[in-house]
Amino acid sequence: MSAIDWDLVRSSLWPLARELLRGTLPLTAISFVLGLTLAVLVALMRLSGNRLISAPARAYVSVIRGTPLLLQLFIIFFGLPELGIKFDPWPAAILGLTLNVGAYASEAVRGAILAVPRGQWEAAMTVGMSRVTTLRRVVLPQAARIAVPSLSNTLISLVKDTSLVAVVTVTELLRQAQIIAGQTFEYFTLYGVAAVYYWVVCLVLSFGQTRLETRLSRHVAA
């Protein structure tokens, strides 16, 4: 007897792809964009000379990186309602994932900002740019190039981490595979198909990362 039921593979291809398209991918995209914005903010806070600004940012990064994402999702979805803060499943999932991306990516962004040579800040200041303009026009564009490899890793981890939001009752690729497997008892087949889907998405992202790195390093000396 074969472990793989090929008819079931064929019939489950679309139901799984559908949850990939309307669960996994939007969760990834929305959390990544929000998380990246949060990360830049947190990185700038951590770089501030003012302890009142840098300390909360440091604490946030420490807490998020020091606790499991699964536990954070439990706290947001099941714990906070006890304090009167209730979230629907999707907002809870997005919040958990965003906080997570924000913490990990902020370290990469901070390192990248620090890696931009001091002479770039000075040159921008001598042509009259303010600190904010210097960040926006000179430092962040160069920091982005430096941060791409590490942010790509964050993105690829995020794709896989979205599978955890099944616990707050959001349906996505893994949850859908679970549901069909529960009905058919074909665990190997369903989880196998789901694994291939995740893998393909990450392959595509890795390919995109390589392209982006090449593009961004065009104007930089070897």
């Binding site: 040579p117 000075e122 040159a123 921008a124 001598t126 042509v127 190039r145 104007h219 000396a221």
Partner: peptide
């Protein structure tokens, strides 16, 4: 804002 500066290492914006 009153002056311009030319650096030893030029410090041009590479991007």
């Amino acid at each position: 804002g009153q002056s311009g500066m030319v650096f030893q290492a030029h410090n041009l914006f590479p991007h």
